[in-house]
Amino acid sequence: MRVLSLRTLNRTLLERQFLLERTSLPAIDIVRHLVAMQAQEPNWPYVGLWTRAEGFAHKELTDLYEDRAVVRGTMVRRTQHLAAAEDFAWLRPTVQPVVRGALAHGYFAPHVEGLDTEELAAAGRELIRGGDLTRAALGRQLGERFAGRHGARLASVVELLEPVVYPPPNGVWGAWGNRTTTPLALAHDWTGVPTATRPDPRTMVTRYLAAFGPAGILDVQAWSGLTRLREVVESLPLRMFRTVDGKELYDLPDAPVADAETPAPVRFLPAFDNAALGHKDRTRLISDADRRRIAPVAALGVPLLLVDGFVRGSWSFKDGALRITPFRPLGRAEEDAVLGEARSLFGFVAGTGAPEDIAVEA
């Protein structure tokens, strides 16, 4: 069984994530390849596509939202993602146990105790049909139907029970922060793509490996939020590798493994990027020490800087200024490469501004 070095795993991940070389593929094909892109903050998927695609413009993703080719909703890891409409149709039912599992948490459990959740789901479906009801309005109407219950919490429960998506203007490029008025729609009503009636974990695993492999079973589970996937993985016709410390990795039979010595350009990743969150063992992209460094604010999302393929710092865009914070000093050539890529990023996120609005902080 071939042993893959950490650097080989790094270059292979970068290649499959279109981070070694920007791709000329249309944005919709990139989204499909990545399976789903995390999208709590609406602007971040735009940056994720910019860092992967040649000449990517904001309008490309906005048009996909408005054409209903992609949708934004709760998917893997019970978090907001965007996916191609046809992928949401099978992915959401596949990870539904993870999504529904939130009902057992303290935030929801007291509000559904003694409640017939099927009755609540049916009421939610009836009210949401049409695609122009906001979350706040849904909460008010559910509060009237289920007297004595917290309407806003019931609205959130419906989003866990039903395949709900968030039509534009939600999710499109705009202010750095989520919109407070969120329109809701049932996915099959909005896209015209029927929602699958049963889970499809085999498709999920093979699609995951195409974008994130080679990977271990714990990696697939960490990305999806599902557990007990060993039987699914081992039922597939996959090839196997090992890491230098003996962990088993699985991959598609014909998927390419990159050369460890392939040069890796500077890349700016958005917060919650696929490449950073796609594995249980993330050392193929970020060291454990650097992961601990960002842990106190990781839940809020940390945009990351890649130098020679690995995380070397973070960045932020606030009040019209781009700030880059290396975790360790950069060499002269490295800093020049970082600033060159930063100027392109600044033009994308700011649109206007002067070079002095970019700074590498000590």
Score class of each variant (00 low, 15 high):
68 R>A: 05
178 N>W: 00
352 T>F: 04
189 D>N: 03
342 A>T: 09
303 P>L: 02
2 R>W: 11
323 R>F: 05
275 A>I: 13
316 S>Y: 03
277 L>H: 07
218 L>G: 03
1 M>R: 14
323 R>T: 09
290 D>Y: 13
331 G>R: 08
210 A>M: 11
318 K>L: 08
106 G>M: 06
121 A>Q: 02
84 A>Y: 11
251 D>C: 08
340 G>D: 13
201 P>G: 07
354 A>C: 00
290 D>M: 05
57 A>Y: 07
259 D>K: 06
355 P>Y: 03
9 L>V: 13
274 N>C: 03
339 L>H: 05
91 L>H: 04
318 K>A: 14
307 V>K: 05
93 P>C: 03
186 L>I: 09
302 V>T: 13
102 A>E: 11
7 R>M: 14
279 H>Q: 08
136 A>F: 07
73 G>N: 11
28 I>D: 12
33 H>G: 03
250 Y>T: 02
81 H>E: 08
185 A>W: 10
198 R>P: 02
262 T>N: 07
248 E>P: 13
12 T>L: 12
90 W>D: 00
93 P>L: 07
282 R>H: 14
9 L>I: 11
267 R>K: 09
53 A>K: 15
193 V>E: 01
255 A>P: 01
80 Q>V: 14
54 E>W: 07
217 I>D: 01
305 L>A: 05
314 S>C: 07
209 L>G: 03
310 F>Y: 15
119 E>R: 13
358 I>H: 05
300 L>S: 14
358 I>S: 02
34 L>A: 12
227 T>R: 05
205 V>K: 04
89 A>F: 04
195 T>V: 15
312 R>Q: 14
177 G>T: 04
105 H>R: 14
245 D>K: 10
275 A>V: 15
32 R>A: 12
322 L>T: 08
219 D>R: 04
9 L>K: 10
22 R>L: 11
69 A>I: 13
341 E>G: 07
216 G>S: 15
313 G>E: 04
42 P>W: 06
273 D>K: 14
224 S>L: 01
160 L>C: 00
346 F>K: 08
27 A>T: 08
15 E>M: 14
14 L>E: 06
9 L>M: 15
164 V>F: 00
141 Q>I: 02
113 E>Y: 00
345 L>C: 10
200 D>Y: 02
282 R>E: 13
291 R>G: 08
8 T>G: 11
58 H>D: 05
148 G>Y: 04
351 G>A: 01
277 L>I: 13
212 F>S: 11
331 G>N: 01
30 I>T: 11
149 R>G: 03
174 G>W: 08
42 P>A: 08
29 D>P: 01
328 R>G: 00
7 R>N: 14
291 R>W: 15
1 M>V: 15
144 E>P: 03
314 S>Y: 05
215 A>V: 10
190 W>R: 06
194 P>M: 06
312 R>T: 12
3 V>W: 00
165 V>E: 00
151 G>H: 06
199 P>E: 03
23 T>D: 04
167 P>F: 01
278 G>I: 12
193 V>G: 04
148 G>A: 04
134 T>W: 09
191 T>Y: 02
301 G>V: 12
252 L>S: 09
